[in-house]
Structure formats: C-alpha cells, structure tokens
Write a protein that binds this DNA or RNA. Structure first.
Lengths: 355, 355
DNA sequence: AGCATCTTTGCATTCGAATGCAAGAATGCT
DNA sequence: AGCATTCTTGCATTCGAATGCAAAGATGCT
C-alpha cells in the first residue's frame, strides 16, 4: 500500500522489478509499479489527449522505456472494441494490378494507424472464408478489391462491419465504393483512333459479372457507335495475360475482316494480346494493329509494351478508400458514399495510323 | 440460478435472448444462456479436442448458429497469448518477385490457421516501425523478405518473437532462413553459355548489402573463372526494371569489348536490360546479346521476354517458411534452421550462340 | 484564509474467451 | 448394491488495457 503510494520506488526495488520482468513482456502494471503510479495512469500516458501532468508523463515514460513497454494492441482492442485491423481482400496472382493496389492501400492504412490483414481471394468461396476470419478478428473494416457476392455483403452490413469496394460494385446497389470512371478519356482515345483511320475495332472484355469491365465496355461501345455504326467484335477474357493472348486468336478466327484496333479492358490482357500478335501471329504492333487498354499499371510502360492506356489514379483511390473506412468506423450510421475518379490517358506507342 | 441450471431455456425466453443480442455481436455468454449451459462449456465446444459430450456440443452449436456466434479472436488471443497473426515484411513496388511471395505466403499461413499482417518495408526505418507494430499486435512470428538490420533482428530475438528470413540473411549468423541456392543450375547455364561460344560476360548485381545477390554473384564468378579466365565486367543495380536498363548502358560504355552475354541477378533487371537493348541500343536479343537471370517470376515468361532464368521454387519455399514459423511458435527454444532449396533452370529464348 | 473551480490521480470494473480445479454424472467392475 | 474410475461440467480466475466515477490536489479569486 505505502510502497504503492510513494512517488518513486527504491533503486534496489527498481532493479528487482526490471529483472522480474526479464523474459516476460512488460505490462502496464509493471510500468506502473516501477514508476510508482497506478496502472490507469500508465494507460492514460499512452492515450493521446488524456489528462496527465507533465511530471507523471515523464516518470511513466522513463519507466516504460526501461522496460521496453509497448501497449498490447490485443488487450486494447478487446476493451475499446476497435482492433485497428482492416481486412484487405484481393484476388490475383494473374493480374498485376492488384499488387499495386495492395501495397498502396497498406501504406495508406498505415498512415492513419491501421494495419492490413491480408486475404487472397480467388472465388466467392474464398471471400466467404475471408469474411468469417475477418469477423473473428474483429476487423474495423473491410476493403474488397475482389469477388464478393451481394449476399456476402449483406451479411457484413448486418454485422455492421464497414465495407469499401475497390473497383468493384453491384449495379445500382448502395454501397461504399471507390472506382474510376474514365468517360472522357475513353472518348478521347476512341476519337483519336478514329482520327487515325481506324474503323474496325475489337473489344476484349472481362467476365460479364465484373461491373467495372461492363462499365468500361459500355463507354467504349457508346463512343464507337456515337461516331459511326462502327464494326465492333467482342470476346471475353479473364483479365489475365494468357486470356489476352487467346482472345486475340479468337478475334482473328471469328472476324470477317481483321480489326485494326483492339481495346483491351485491362493492361494484362493487352500485354498478352501484343505478345501474341508479335510472336505468334506475326503482326506488327502498332503498325498493323493498334492496341489500347485500361489500368496503367507499372509494367504497361515497359519498353516492350509502352501501352496507350487509361491510367487509374491508384494512389488517390487508395487514399479515398482508406478515408471511407475511417469515416465509417467513426460514424457507422452515415450513409454510403461513392467516390469516382477520372482516368488519365497515357499515350504510349501501341497505336498508330491505319496504313 | 435455477434458470441457469435448466437444460433448455423456455421458447419465449429464447426469442428474448435472440432479440436482446440483436445489433450486438454475440458472445460466448449469450450462447451459453441460450443453450442453458455455462460459458466454459461454450468455450470448450469451440476448442478442438476438448472434453465435451455430444449432447452438449449439439445444443451449443445450435445456439451458436442461431446467434451467428464466432469466437472473438482478440479475446482468445489475450488469454492464450497467441494472436494467430504473423507479420509479413515485404518491400517492393519495384520488384514483382515480392507480390508472388506475398500471396503464396498468405495462402500457406491460411492453411495452418494463421493470418497475414502485411507491412510494406522499403528501408531499415520502415522495418523498425513494422517491428514495433508487429510487437504491439503480439504477432506469433515475423517473416521478413525485406530490409532488416542485425540489430533489429536482435531486438526481436530478445523479445522472443520467432523470425524467419525469406531469401535474406546475414553472413554466418544463426537465424531461421529459407532461401534458394541454385549452385548446380548456375553451373549448368554458364556451361551452356560457354558451349554456345560466349567468352565475354557481364554481371548485373544487386546492391552489395544484399546477401542473396552476393551469393548468386559468387556462384557466377566461381563458375566463370573455373572454366577460363573469362572476361567479366560487373555493374550494380537495385533489382528494378529501370536499374537493369541503365546497367546495360553502363556496361556498354565501360566495356572495352562488348560482352556477348549478360547475367542479371534478378528477372526484373533482365527485363529492363532486354528492353533497353532492343528499343534503345538496337541490339537483338538473343542473336546479338544473350541474357540470363534469376527468380523465374511469372512475367519473365511473357512472350516479350521468355527469359532463360533460374526459378526459385517459391511455393515450396513459402511452405517451408510457414513451417518454420509454426515450429518456432510451438517450440520457441529450438535452435535455428536453414532451409535451402535448389533452383530450376527454365530454358527460355533469351540466349543464343555467338554469331 | 476560505471557498469554488479545474485538473490530476487511483479505484474498481469491464471487454470475451480459456482453463485449473473440484464437484457431479456416468460407467464399469466385483 | 457398493465402490472405483473415467468423463463432463461449472465456478472462479486470468489475460492487459481502458474508463466512469469519486477523491485528492492544484489553482484562482475574493
């Protein structure tokens, strides 16, 4: 009792405490004992904005340093009901767009004191498992850049877990979403292709179930039709390099007359397409075949490709996604929000005039 | 008291409990009350191998389902002193090797019930911050495929956090490490190059501080010298595409006679090198310049590159890394272990005979 | 000095699940 | 039936930090 009250423990007792801790992780109680204060005082010293005198803070901090004390985020999470964990669901060994998103999301989360709990999700089943796990770990929110069904989302909503979709959405459903709607860039680039003499186009889509792909396709179709009843052949891929390559073969075999320009719904397929054209089919890109695409991932600008592509402002989108998560965590009842970004046209060297 | 004892709660009371929960996350107490058993019984039902009768288990599980109960991993972590979290430290927007490792590590962790807490680390400072965070979150272990100083590692060891290095290590220091030592593949491919008539080589290294790069370099140098006092010019890169490109320029400006084969210490630099050779310098690869490299990442096999490269068995390495973590978590005092893997030579089309 | 106001501090409780211990139930054996 | 053994179950405590409340201390004002 008395020893608890005294302002500083005796030197010999101090070393006793320090050595007692040895091998164990120091807790706030250990720090409190060493500093001769209460556990709550220690807790308050590590809570920004709490009411603590300078004297107390100094003493506690000194003791904390001696014991290498760090607040236990798990215990803190239990009592505060905030884990500071955010689940990130990404798919994707096949599309190198995702790693870029993942790394930037992680950094943005880190800036606001949140940690990324990573889940790789290649199917709806995976998403279901990820959701269960995320729920068990009491994540503060989920950022999904991957497969997730409406039912699964509903479950999360019922459980009051904030969800932000990253370049994924459901038609006309109210959700939090960050995505890129590059309407004017599509106009611009399609016009440009037409100015270059292109009249016959092909479109390599993503899966029909993917809304972002559908949206991009709509923009492309509208724009091509708006100028002239253009010739547009469409085939479907799965966003992967390989599927871009086989899509090209399909186009060439199906089209009555070979298209002079191909619009790929993402960079990976465009790269597959270019490589297939050059190495297998023997078409020169861009002289004989122009190719444009969407995303603007890093490697789309490698000299082998130098894609003309519509870049997503991934950095700002990640920032927005994290911003939405934070906002929903702080005010769970606020209504959903869509943050839509423009694209940016990167003029590479994958297009040319029709010869 | 009495109601706590009775084997099943009354129907009306049940719905009262169910609705009481509404909006809240169900806890083991809620389930216990609904099932008419004790909280410890619920806990045991969710612990594999615990002693519970079938009757009890059924009743508890039914109640749990009704309430959508899932054990709170945070609370569990607090009492068991096991968070089931593993920190993964990767660097790397610039080297697409890391995303592959990251995704596979995550999947392997998931298989053994562990979750990946992701940290992006581009410098030792970042590593320091990641370590602090990981420590606060009571991670069960750390897998580092990134910068980490010996001092930082020592801190972790002192704190008894298992660490496994992934393709990183310190010279002759005892640590847990998984890496790839492709000695025979280096021999094989260098011999092959020599058989193809190559005598003048260049080596594009990674940073001198990187042990894996140094090790690969050693293998290359030994092998080249062992056959003939070959001509070997060396320049340093940073594993990125761009640095591969500029390394080529440096080689061409420094070398008295142009090398006919370039050994790149990773695929990214090889791709930069190939692109630079083809697009800027105007050299045909492989006719005028052969290029080989290390890693065997997915995109190294894209048709634009088709690198002859020594692949790391990333899948098995990730499995091993997770295995080591699990072993250290279960038996913390066991001594360190190195798991070394062979490489596998992928014969692409980036090499040819000297003309 | 005396009183009011504001600040600082400690006490006691809480979050949700796990677990050692002992009591109680079920089973087997003589 | 009586006793020993094994299996189930509940009680009470624990993990480590946060926080409402009230007491104690500091400060200002008259």
């Amino acid at each position: 009792m008395a020893s608890n009250r005294q302002k500083t423990s005796q030197p010999d007792e101090n070393s006793k405490i320090v050595s007692l801790i040895k091998g164990r992780r120091a807790t706030s109680y250990d720090v409190a004992r060493l500093a001769g204060v209460s556990q709550s005082a220690v807790s308050r010293c590590f809570k920004p904005g709490a009411s603590v005198s300078q004297k107390m803070r100094d003493r506690v901090m000194k003791a904390a340093e001696q014991l290498e004390y760090r607040p236990n985020a798990i215990a803190r999470g239990l009592i505060t009901q905030r884990s500071n964990l955010v689940a990130i669901l990404v798919s994707g060994r096949l599309n190198l767009y995702y790693p870029e998103v993942l790394f930037q999301l992680t950094e943005e989360l880190s800036k606001v004191g949140l940690r990324a709990l990573l889940f790789t999700v290649e199917s709806e089943d995976d998403a279901g498992m990820a959701i269960e796990q995320a729920w068990q770990f009491q994540v503060d929110g989920i950022i999904s850049a991957s497969h997730m069904s409406w039912d699964q989302y509903q479950t999360l909503e019922k459980r009051k877990i904030p969800v932000v979709f990253f370049n994924r959405y459901f038609l006309d459903k109210p959700i939090n979403v960050v995505h890129c709607y590059p309407a004017s860039q599509v106009s611009e680039i399609i016009s440009k292709l037409q100015d270059l003499g292109h009249r016959k186009f092909a479109l390599i889509r993503g899966p029909e179930s993917n809304m972002v792909s559908r949206q991009r396709c709509e923009l492309v179709r509208e724009r091509i039709r708006s100028v002239r009843k253009g010739n547009l052949i469409e085939v479907e891929g799965d966003f992967s390099y390989d599927s871009g390559a086989s899509a090209l073969q399909q186009i060439l075999s199906e089209a009555a007359a070979r298209p002079t320009a191909i619009i790929c719904i993402n960079d990976m397929m465009a790269m597959g397409c270019i490589d297939e054209a050059r190495s297998i089919v023997g078409l020169e890109v861009p002289r004989e075949l122009s190719i444009i695409s969407f995303d603007g991932i890093g490697m789309s600008q490698f000299a082998s490709y130098e894609l003309t592509t519509i870049r997503q402002p991934i950095g700002r989108m990640c920032e927005a996604a994290v911003g939405l998560i934070v906002a929903r965590v702080e005010r769970p009842d606020q209504s959903n929000e869509k943050r839509v970004f423009e694209g940016a046209l990167i003029e590479g060297s994958s297009i040319a005039a029709v010869s």
